[in-house]
Design a protein around this nucleic acid. Structure first.
Length: 500
RNA sequence: CGGGGCGUAGCUCAGCUUGGCUAGAGCGUUGCGUUCGGGACGCAAAGGCCGGAGGUUCAAAUCCUCUCGCCCCGACCA
């Protein structure tokens, strides 16, 4: 019988999440480094695919990659008041250089004149260099992206969703006027949406953050929000309008066409390895990881099946030949010809790892010039076994390519159907409380009076927060109403949910 | 950072209350054989500073103190 390696979602969602990550070999706690994780090869391969696709989109929109130091002078953080307030508690600080042995123990040696912080984000140090690089309106816009690691001393961590150190990209741009900067903010938010939809098969809502949820130092934060299978929201990406806040803090100025000296208008935007967690919680099931083909490190696993040694030789040879053909068609293929495992074990193992399509190849298939294939998500037959499909060897790459395309589309459709089924409009406080009772959560469109106090009161009462004010067309049409909590006038509905 | 739970073989855990001989089980791993189309079986074997440090004791996985890490709840954060 099936071994209970993965806790069912219905029993314990948090445990399920960890089990999927462990069983798929995505990551594990770093153990000797508090709050940090080791991203294992299969997990890192997914991140690399995300990077490759995003990087292409950034370059297509005119951005160039650069790299800035990991360490930032402590004084830089203090130059933007809101920014330091937001990040001060999360900073790891480097205060010494060198080690020396004292009584057989290694201790720090030289205290630094000015400590460094390990970057929690790079607006400040990039601001410093932008000031050197920008002189004229002809230097603008300056469109920079950095792929990097950052560190935030989080008090409570969860693999991929919130770790002490994480990998991300941070775009930093400078513009000659606010309008252009705002265009950039929305342009990159659209890049994130397109990536989430087309590549991750994860539907997102674009919106504007409330003042409470805004990035420290921004004048406006836009975001993409996604609904996880437990009804909680995950902020999947952000794009900030920094106004002239950092331009003024770091004296980033340029001479305009009319000869005046002006501060630049900046933006920053980022997504992180958190997206891997989002992927897990959007598509995976009780059998393990489910990956959209566009992010799957392995598209197809070929499992040869044999009884006799002669069959083994024949079938394995054919399996490698087929794999070579499929690779020629642009697919990433793994042949699992291990002889210490039976086929069933291999099926479960590759399903836990999220391989979208499995090809079974045995003597019967060879005789009929065909293979049996199984999709990672397949309906069950009358006997409770997953449905398999018989495909001709002829043009197998095309057939599988088609199936992968269908699978990609189907995952998005499924995720969107789930989100639609878990999105409601609520008009009474009783109903609102009922949705968020216990561990409950959904996407809730409700009226809000626009005040921070009410936002906080709602959070204190239900743990639900305003995820965003959805952009036009991403929620119910604007209509005035009464705040779900206070009954005061409201211009529009906003999106509530509990969140990660 | 506050509250709670946990840390014993690669994994899941038993043993701890009431200290005592060579620290156990299942799964996994290795070897051989039989197997192989949805989680096989037999035989043999390897694998442990019982998270770490200190203490109590004739004797510590077990009791005490400190410490590190993980998980959950909260606060914080995004």
């Amino acid at each position: 019988m099936a071994e209970a390696r993965i806790t069912p979602r219905s029993k314990d969602y948090a445990q399920w999440y960890q089990d999927v990550i462990r069983e798929a070999g995505l990551a594990e706690p770093a153990e000797v480094v508090r709050g940090c994780m080791v991203i294992k090869p299969h997990g890192y391969a997914i991140w690399e695919k995300m990077q490759a696709d995003l990087d292409r989109r950034f370059k297509e929109t005119g951005h160039e990659n650069a790299y800035f130091p990991l360490l930032i002078p402590l004084s830089f953080l203090a130059k933007e008041a809101q920014h330091v307030e937001g990040f001060a508690m999360e900073c790891a600080v480097v205060t010494h250089s060198g080690l020396k042995a004292v009584d057989g123990k290694l201790v720090v040696k030289n205290e630094l004149e000015e400590p460094y912080v390990v970057r929690p984000t790079s607006e400040t140090i990039i601001g410093h260099f932008f000031a050197k690089w920008i002189d004229s309106y002809r230097d603008l816009p300056l469109l920079i992206n950095q792929w990097a690691n950052v560190m935030r001393w989080e008090l409570r961590t969860r693999l991929f969703l919130r770790t002490g150190e994480f990998l991300w990209q941070e775009g930093h741009t400078a513009h000659a006027n606010h309008a252009e900067a705002r265009e950039e903010v929305q342009r990159m938010l659209d890049v994130y949406r397109d990536f989430a939809h087309e590549v991750m098969a994860m539907p997102v809502i674009q919106g504007v953050k409330t003042e409470n949820e805004r990035f420290a130092g921004a004048v406006e934060t836009r975001c993409i929000e996604s609904l996880m299978q437990d009804g909680k929201a995950l902020q999947a990406g952000t794009s900030h309008d920094l106004g002239q806040n950092f331009g003024k803090a770091f004296n980033v100025t340029f001479q305009s066409e009319t000869g005046t000296r002006e501060h630049v208008w900046q933006t920053s935007w980022g997504v992180s390895t958190r997206l891997v967690g989002a992927l897990v919680m959007t598509h995976s099931d009780d059998e393990g990881l489910v990956l959209p083909p566009k992010l799957a490190p392995i598209h197809v696993v070929v499992v040869p099946i044999w009884k006799t040694d002669a069959e083994k030789t024949q079938v394995c040879e054919a399996a490698h030949r087929i794999a070579k053909d499929l690779r020629g068609d642009g697919l990433s293929v793994k042949v699992d010809d291990r002889d210490n495992l039976r086929p069933g074990d291999k099926y479960y193992e590759w399903e836990r790892k999220g391989v979208p399509v499995r090809v079974e190849l045995g003597p019967r298939d060879l005789a009929s010039s065909s293979v049996m294939i199984k999709r990672r998500i397949a309906p069950l037959d009358a006997n409770g076994k997953p449905v398999k499909e018989k495909l001709a060897l002829q043009d197998l790459g095309l057939s599988i390519g088609k199936i992968l395309d269908e699978f990609q589309v189907e995952l998005f459709r499924r995720a969107q159907a789930f989100r639609d089924a878990n999105t409601v409009s609520v008009d009474t406080w009783e109903e609102f409380q009922a949705v968020f009772a216990g561990d409950g959560s959904k996407f809730v469109h409700a009226h809000w009076d626009g005040t921070g106090e009410t936002e906080k009161a709602i959070k204190d009462a239900t743990k639900a927060t305003i995820r965003c004010l959805p952009l036009a067309g991403q929620g119910p049409a604007p209509e005035p109403g009464k705040c779900v909590k206070t009954g005061r006038p409201s211009a529009r509905r906003v999106l509530f949910a509990k969140n990660y």
